[in-house]
Simulated assay, not measured.
Amino acid sequence: MLEFMDYVQTAFHAQSRWNIDNSYAALTTTAQNLLDFRIPQGLRLHVSSLSSPSFATSYTLGSNGLVDGSLSFLYSSSGLSIASKSSDIRLEHLVRGYRRLQELQRPDELHWNEIWHQGKRIDRKDALLYGRLYLPGSTLEALYLRRISPTRMLRLSGVSDASLPNGGSALALLQNDYGKYSTEYLYSTDSALLGLRGLYNFGYDPRTLVSQQPQHSTRAPAHPWDHQSGRLSAGAEAYFSPINKSGGVSCGLRFTTLPTHTGFPYTMTLTVNPLMGNLSTTYAVQAGRYMALCSRFDFNVYSYESDVVVGVELWRRKQAAADVAWASKLVRPGWSKVVEDDVNGVLKAQMDDKGKVGLLWECRVKELLVSLGAGFDLKKRERMLGSVGIEVSYSS
């Protein structure tokens, strides 16, 4: 389940019209959400608040052998109009599950966001500042986001910890999203790492849209791929450290269905690391409105080692079908509102070929959000149960 600060950062991206899925780094996000979910460790309590549309705070207290915690603060120059009470936030906005990608959008024109007053521009570029202090170790991490232009975002992050080399590290990431394709340039002070990523989407080019205003956009003459029910994307990354004189490359493909697809939504990916000889394929399908399945197969061409992981995600409905049918009768034919089933819980499970099993139950209990998880190793008969934990979150 997303922590409150991650939920606010996601809202910042959405409000500033930044597509977090149009990136090579997000190529396998769907499979990671279904197979690599985090299992809580020990007992942890989160208390958060969005005191104003631009300022949020969060406090965490945990106990996993010893008492620890953290203090978090976040500021957004753009006021965020989002639900902040834990009882009001939809569970679908907090649980990372199967991701249904939308049609690509044309980037905003530069002049759309300009605000002039008495011959002077008074508009500001959206920015977000986040900081978190971990106790008792006094580790500090920080994040700064700034929308430089409608197609560009700057991301600066850093961590300060006496146990790290040079007392910490910083990462600068410049992201460019043109709809049809995206690029990323990164630099890390850790070993002076330099990196480049890119993602290209086959099909129509959203930049060919003809528009008078951002609220009223129409497409140019139809392209043969305009009405596709799926999208194929290809990307690659390369990085190099001049200090360690080492580097790496990887490339990947993703095919995912779009909202126009009439069958079950599904996503397939293939990633290859030629230097290490690693190959990974994933397949995820939303088999029903309340169920998703996923599998991943990893293989190394040098050692012939392989790994297989399968996972499932099941949502628990909040309302019975009869209640929804009764409620739908109250909706007039002319209304655009759609009555939908709500959910109040989700069960995630994954298992690999080594006999390791992970279970996670996330739900809402009155005003609280609860995550309960456990890990098992079926090959260890004497100590089959591994890590167990529970997290409780409340926000206002």
Rank of each mutant, 00 (worst) to 15 (best):
G198K: 13
E109I: 12
V392Y: 04
S52A: 01
L186A: 04
T267L: 08
H93W: 11
S371F: 01
T29A: 15
S280M: 14
L258A: 01
D205C: 05
W112L: 11
L91T: 13
G65Q: 05
L196I: 06
V338M: 12
T267R: 05
S371Q: 05
V272D: 01
K356C: 15
Q228K: 09
R155V: 15
P214A: 09
S280L: 06
S303H: 09
L199K: 08
L50K: 06
P107S: 15
L71T: 09
L104I: 15
G277H: 07
V301Y: 13
V324R: 04
T281N: 14
S396H: 13
Q102N: 05
L368A: 06
Y178S: 12
V339F: 03
L140V: 06
Y266C: 14
G235D: 08
D323Y: 15
V47D: 00
Y7E: 02
L43K: 01
L258Y: 10
S78Q: 04
S188A: 11
P53C: 10
D353V: 07
E313I: 08
D353M: 02
L293H: 15
A170E: 07
S48Q: 04
L275W: 06
R146C: 06
L232H: 12
R146H: 11
C251T: 15
L275E: 02
G355A: 03
L2N: 03
S241C: 06
T267I: 06
N201G: 03
